[in-house]
Design a binder for these strands. Structure first.
Lengths: 227, 227
DNA sequence: TCTATGCTTCGATTAGGATCGAACTATGAA
DNA sequence: TTCATAGTTCGATCCTAATCGAAGCATAGA
């Protein structure tokens, strides 16, 4: 009678309207701050903070501190999957929220974040590397797998030289427009440099926009295509 | 900001310990009466009755009156699927319930997930079917190949009858104890039924444990052996 | 250093709902 | 009919947890 995992704890976490609203907002895949989630749920920041620590403790969220902000995203695809299932039960047809309208299209598509690729293409590359098993995320630590090393070397990047430096090879970076992770660290920097060397991409001199050539787009899609 | 399906309402229904216990009991696939479910949850019949009408109103259960008894079962595979997903999250968060007894080991080896085989043997069968080319996984879609159809028919299952129903033939279901996929859908259900018909396996009356006979183990290994 | 902002903690209040006793209805058996 | 069993409804109690004001930290920027 009392066997199996404690499903009630998790379900009760999702079962509060305020928390459910926050989780629904996070289904966009974006990371959101405490204040944003508070507004999303229609409650004060204090209350939101309390809710978020409960959700975190329950393993549903993944928090990341960045400066004085604290970003939350869903802990895993598994969580998203369960939430979607619940939505299916609740309505059968209800669906996701609309996205925020693109303001500066070029910037949102591809731009430089310090020294690596950010924006839509940055997150796409990151997601593809994870999905393809080239990059592995263990808690906070990001590491390159063997197949990932092969992919990078195949692009003509000297991995040994990168590993000599004292900077981390792989790091997650969260940027403000997509609110999702993309690849930073020395590898992230090397990849963008390599794209430029291959004339796949070119940085605009005055803005942070990164423009891809037609050939660059093709190659990028071949390597990191979502289809 | 309050648009979209009301996931909180459904999750709150599952989030009460007493109701969660009843739902977990119903994961065995059997229909249970109000009194049985009350005992299962450790509450009085009055309270159980109140809970059950709420679950019914929420669309999670399917009630059937039979004489002066009222039998409840889960409303659909979809409900079972969400419950199994929640178990996966709970198990992942380390919120396993209480003592791990010998029952727990049996549950992990082979159990009923609503109406199909789960646990170690469930995932083993699934993996074997994939590896043998009997089942093909394309993204989210799972389909039976020609050789798979042959295998199933050879077991004495009427594939044509299954395909007539409106339920999906093959579906993936995530296993909370193994954290891997096993086979759900009408085919998953048919396979378990067939194992029972052949006296290879037998469901425990009170728990979700599935016990295989010595001969059943042999046959199962012959068909889905990992060697 | 000082100020502004983002978040957390503490305490008090309050509302919702889980629970059970008791009474009531419905079905089946004698 | 009368009795027994299964389930529902009602009312009162009680307890959990959501909520927010206020104060306390922590970080960024000047």
């Amino acid at each position: 009678m009392k066997e199996g995992p404690d499903i009630a704890r998790i379900a009760a976490l999702i079962g509060d309207p305020a928390r459910a609203n926050m989780l629904t907002a996070l289904m966009s895949g974006k990371a959101l701050t405490v204040s944003e989630l508070a507004e999303e749920a229609g409650i004060t920041i204090q209350t939101a903070s309390s809710h978020l620590s409960k959700l975190d403790e329950g393993g549903l969220l993944r928090p990341r501190k960045q400066g004085r902000h604290k970003y939350f995203s869903l802990a895993s695809d598994q969580v998203a999957h369960v939430l979607e299932g619940l939505m299916g039960l609740a309505a059968g047809a209800g669906h996701l929220r609309r996205r925020t309208g693109p303001k500066d299209a070029e910037l949102r598509q591809a731009r430089v974040c310090y020294n690596h690729l950010a924006g839509d293409m940055g997150t796409q590359m990151f997601d593809s590397l994870i999905a393809g098993g080239h990059l592995r995320l263990d808690g906070e630590d990001l590491s390159l797998t063997e197949t990932g090393a092969g992919l990078v070397t195949g692009l003509g990047i000297d991995l040994g030289a990168l590993q000599k430096g004292q900077a981390a090879l792989c790091r997650e970076c969260l940027d403000w427009s997509e609110r999702r992770s993309h690849l930073a660290g020395s590898l992230g920097r090397a990849l963008l440099s390599r794209f430029e060397e291959l004339s796949w991409a070119r940085r605009d001199q005055k803005t942070r926009v990164v423009s891809f050539s037609p050939n660059g787009v093709t190659e990028f899609e071949r390597l990191f295509g979502s289809g």
